[in-house]
């Protein structure tokens, strides 16, 4: 009976952690996503460098939690992409800059999509 109780408690804990991981990813990546979309819509003459630096700073904050649930190589790739953005903006490489933001947006959307228990992910 003690074993069964432990197992049930553990099961609830596992489900809780799984739900929390999904919630945390939705929240953290959602916030980053909004900032990245804003950056994508900012014109080349706007404050691209400041905003991309802000995105990178925010990413570094959020990554601390994401590292618990997301494969580290995927996070590393996003870190590299975001680290490049301020420099691209500074040197006027707008084509590369916007394509970089697109890659970041797509990867973050992929991460969110992969975390959701949809039938596509389950099958």
């Amino acid at each position: 009976m003690k074993r069964l109780v432990t197992a049930v408690v553990l099961l609830f804990l596992i489900v809780g952690i799984s739900c929390f991981s999904l919630f945390a990813q939705e929240r953290e990546l959602g916030e980053l996503n909004r900032l990245a979309i804003e950056l994508r819509q900012t014109e080349a003459t706007g404050q691209l460098e400041e905003k991309s630096e802000e995105l990178f700073r925010l990413w570094n904050e959020k990554e601390r939690l994401l590292v618990l649930f997301v494969r580290h190589d995927v996070l590393d790739e996003l870190t590299v992409r975001m680290a490049q953005l301020p420099s691209l903006a500074r040197h006027g490489e707008y084509g590369l800059f916007y394509s970089g933001v697109d890659v970041v947006l797509a990867r973050m959307e992929d991460l969110l999509e992969a975390a959701r228990p949809t039938y596509r992910n389950l099958l």
Binding site: A7, S18, V67, F69
Partner: peptide, 14 residues
């Protein structure tokens, strides 16, 4: 992530 290993192991046990 370690959780990716711990979670399925503990799930299977439960």
């Amino acid at each position: 992530p370690l959780f990716s290993g711990l979670l399925p192991i503990l799930s299977l046990v439960t």
